[in-house]
């Protein structure tokens, strides 16, 4: 059956640059195919704006298939939109009603300043990563399977943690703008595997210091991060980071 096209009102944050005050502006997008993605709807809106000699709405995106972590915005008050376990680029217009107004805001956090419209500067995450989100030595090619034993449970958990795409939704959704889930995922991912152990203490120490220096809030254990995470990373990551941090602090 042919689906009926819908009309959508987009109330979106417009901000010229980091130093200008922003404001919301509402646009009408007619004839939206419900099978379009949310970002395609923004593309259509931008084409209309360009035709009318207006400045298009700036938003980040790259892969449009939920793996690069570029596309995060807050849709109707929820990071990455209403559906759990998905990124903004995976939001489909059939999730909205004909004539609905959709509120679109950028991530809000002091360490994530708005660059333009919906685009924020997330290099704070890169600076945290540069403090230890890696293993310093080249681990070479695939080793003989039994040379380093990894318990199945650790391998599974490490994979769950490695699923983090660094999109920043955890920070955006946290009432405290805390980056605990992001850093927790990185610390856990590497800390659960033997190759990551030698640098575990140094890693957690330096990454936490950088996280604090960037101005992220502390974790109050609300758990909103876990609920919006497109990769559904659990807050057990945060507890693990805390354990690693305490171990590093006392030892």
């Amino acid at each position: 059956m042919e689906k009926k096209n819908i009309t959508i009102y987009v109330k979106v944050w417009r901000q010229e640059d980091a130093n200008t005050k922003g404001r919301f502006q509402t646009y009408t997008v007619e004839d939206v195919n419900p099978d379009m993605s949310f970002l395609e709807m923004l593309d259509v809106l931008n084409e209309n704006l360009i035709k009318n000699d207006d400045i298009p709405i700036e938003f980040d995106n790259d892969c449009r298939e939920g793996i690069c972590g570029m596309c995060g915005v807050v849709i109707n008050g929820t990071a990455h939109g209403p559906k759990s376990g998905t990124t903004t680029c995976e939001v489909r217009m059939r999730q909205f009603k004909d004539g609905q107004t959709i509120l679109v805001e950028p991530w809000r956090a002091r360490p994530f300043p708005v660059i333009k419209d919906l685009v924020v500067d997330r290099t704070a995450f890169d600076r945290i990563m540069s403090k230890g989100g890696y293993i310093s030595v080249r681990t070479g090619g695939v080793p003989e399977a039994r040379s380093i034993l990894v318990p199945k449970e650790n391998a599974d958990q490490a994979m769950d943690m490695a699923a983090c795409i660094g999109c920043g939704a955890c920070v955006a959704a946290c009432p405290n703008a805390s980056a605990a889930l992001f850093v927790g995922a990185k610390v856990s991912h590497l800390g659960l595997l033997p190759q990551g152990r030698p640098e575990a203490k140094r890693r957690v120490d330096r990454m936490v210091v950088q996280m604090d220096e960037e101005g992220f809030g502390a974790c109050s254990n609300h758990g909103e991060c876990e609920a919006v995470c497109p990769k559904e990373i659990s807050i057990t990551a945060i507890a693990r980071m805390r354990r690693e941090f305490l171990k590093a602090a006392v030892g």
């Binding site: 990071a79 759990s84 609300h222 909103e224």
Partner: peptide, 18 residues
Amino acid sequence: ARPVGYAKVTNAGGTSRK
């Protein structure tokens, strides 16, 4: 940590303990 707040905050529900 959040000098500019959101116009709207919807609780994520699901596994959140907020």
